[in-house]
Amino acid sequence: MLRLIGERLISTVILMAAVSVVAFILIQLPPGDFADSYANKKAQGGVVITLEEVDEMRNKLGLDRPLYIQYFDWIGGVLGGDFGFSWEFHRPVSDVIGERLGLTLALAFSTLIFTYLLALPIGIYSAVRQYSIGDHVMTLLGYIGLATPNFMLALILLYVGSELFGLSAGGLFSPEYAEAEWSLARFGDMLAHLWVPVVVLGTAGTAFQMRTMRATLLDEINKMYVIAARAGGISEFKLLMKYPVRMALNPIVSTLGWELTNIISGAPIVALVLSLPDTGPLFLQALLNQDMYLAGAMILIYCVLVVIGTLVSDLLLLWLDPRIRLEGAR
């Protein structure tokens, strides 16, 4: 068991290293660099910048060095907690991201909790009452949820939120709290706004996990071990929870990391549509401006979140299923 966890942790570290290389290459992929995009912007503003000036800027920022040197320079800083400098914001990357990352995390985890809190009970209900009216309604809602694009749902909820509930359109705060210090009232105000992006980001995942739960549970519910346990005299609810539901959790838990990927990769678009003050719009802006260190740090953070999600789901699976545990012990 311990060895299995150890192996898993080591492979996670290797994966992170690989991911950091890929992240760095990714931000280099678009043609040009920050110096070019800076020159372009100035040129549009009517200011003429000579090639020499661009080259000089490139040299000052270290962009003319070979890629691998730039990478090691960057990753060395990251390991020491220094994510580099955002040329666009003229501030260290960690400062720029820091104030927004909390909101991104809050959004991602609220969405995860929303997804499972809704999907699991509905999936169980649908399986136990297969072909009932409730099951049919949930199935229909599930398909609609799967089929609706996130940005569309975001626009609809935005409209509903401001028309029916009088919420300020978009954002995570009402205007009076937007720049205020953290307080209980501000937190409450955030929760009142948070549900919109949570619903938008979580709907597809909820629908998917609901279908997974229903299908797996239907498979398990007539298995021999369930009937054998029922023959022992256990109550139906306890039976359901202890035997088939616990078994049906396996595929749910193993897709946890993947679900987190979906949420995180869907978040920037939704954040843009809803104009959320989290890392989403920042990320897009960084990519457009070729603000290299900022974009790199964001990609790295997103990837690390996904890798951690996968790790957590693997560890949960180990804890849930003794067969996997024993497989590893051998």
């Binding site: 023959a231 202890k242 078994m247």
Partner: peptide, 28 residues
């Protein structure tokens, strides 16, 4: 699914099944 039959199951009347390989949950 009532409690009267549950009191009999496993207590006064017990049952064993054809497939020993699948009659126990692998998780416990």
């Amino acid at each position: 699914r009532g409690s009267a039959i549950r009191d009999l199951r496993g207590n006064d009347i017990a049952m064993i099944f054809q497939e020993p390989m699948s009659s126990f949950s692998p998780l416990y």
